[in-house]
Design a protein around this nucleic acid. Structure first.
Length: 294
DNA sequence: AATTGGTCCAACCGCGGTTTG
DNA sequence: TCAAACCGCGGTTGGACCAAT
């Protein structure tokens, strides 16, 4: 049973489209075809005029959304890979819920897709690791580790390392895994809701070091945060080589391990307070990262 | 086989910023 | 200068799907 306001809304159409009665809900293949054909032929100088010109009973907003999130030819389909996931986590840590900005670092992905992936997968993963998804800080003790004893083990180990950096660490072994707490969760393949949905094979994605390196000024390797909004995706993944501590991304299980002398994605000053600041500080401020040397 | 509860994703809503007349 | 129209974004929701019971 519909509420009165809902019936009025349906009768009147979208708020954004005023008096025109428009179709809502899932798009049919016929509608997709009409929109696709129109936009590939004419472009979309004005979204508000697209539905009329394309012969669709939809509002311009709905057409725009359908194009951006589904019909655009450059869209990538399928599950997010480990590198994409790490990119999202890292950029989110810097930008927060700026899904559109985050999506710019993931070619072929939409803000909606990133947002859904965050809410359905990454958020839970961080929570299960005792990390606050909004701040990426370690949550207070009473809020975390309620479900996993492994988490406690990892943090205890990290705490020990912090107290005594030389203990447990050598130059070739993984000393501490920040996220190696839960087994890797295989991402489900996208369900094929729309009848004409096609899956495009995953392409090589920008690894996280692309994202982070784009924040750095070339010569001094100092983060240029002023350009965060304008960051363009970078195609090639520069490989840092350094004797400093390295936080890398494990492709197999998306674990971020702190390694030594391993060419990987990030290099940090071997000041352990800095290395572990993101994982260990409850009052952690993302801008603390500025103290890191890359 | 039917039911139920959880997950995931496509699409909608509403707001704020920008453009236009 | 201002109001209306437009656009883009983030938050939210509805419902399809799936697994457990």
């Amino acid at each position: 049973m519909k509420e009165k306001w809902e019936m009025k809304r349906d009768e009147m159409g979208h708020r954004c489209c005023g008096k025109h009665k428009v179709k809502r809900g899932l798009w049919s293949p016929e509608e997709d075809e009409k929109l696709l054909r129109y936009i590939t032929t004419h472009g979309h100088p004005s979204w508000s005029s697209v539905p009329k010109l394309a012969g669709l009973q939809r509002c311009g907003k709905s057409c725009r959304l359908r194009w951006i999130n589904y019909l655009r030819p450059d869209l990538k389909r399928g599950s997010f890979n480990a590198e994409e996931e790490q990119t999202i986590i890292d950029v989110h840590r810097i930008l927060g819920n700026k899904w559109a900005q985050i999506a710019k670092h993931l070619p072929g992905r939409t803000d909606n897709e990133v947002k859904n992936f965050w809410n359905s997968c990454i958020k839970k993963k961080l929570l299960s690791q005792g990390l606050d998804p909004s701040t990426h800080n370690l949550m207070p003790a009473h809020k975390r580790f309620s479900s996993s004893s492994n988490n406690n083990k990892s943090v205890h180990k990290a705490t020990n390392i912090l107290k005594n950096p030389t203990q447990d660490l050598d130059e070739s072994t993984t000393a501490f895994s920040i996220t190696n707490i839960n087994p890797p969760t295989p991402t489900k393949p996208n369900r094929l809701k729309s009848p004409n949905r096609t899956l495009i094979p995953a392409q090589t994605m920008n690894p996280i070091n692309d994202t982070m390196s784009s924040l750095l000024d070339g010569e001094n390797m100092i983060p240029d945060w002023s350009d965060v909004d304008g960051m363009a995706p970078i195609q090639e993944a520069p490989m840092f080589s350094s004797e400093k501590a390295v936080v890398g991304v494990d492709d197999d299980d998306l674990n971020m391990d702190i390694l030594f002398n391993t060419p990987s994605s990030y290099t940090f000053d071997p000041d352990f307070a800095s290395i572990f600041s993101s994982a260990m500080s409850i009052d952690y401020n993302p801008m603390d990262d500025l103290g890191w040397t890359f």
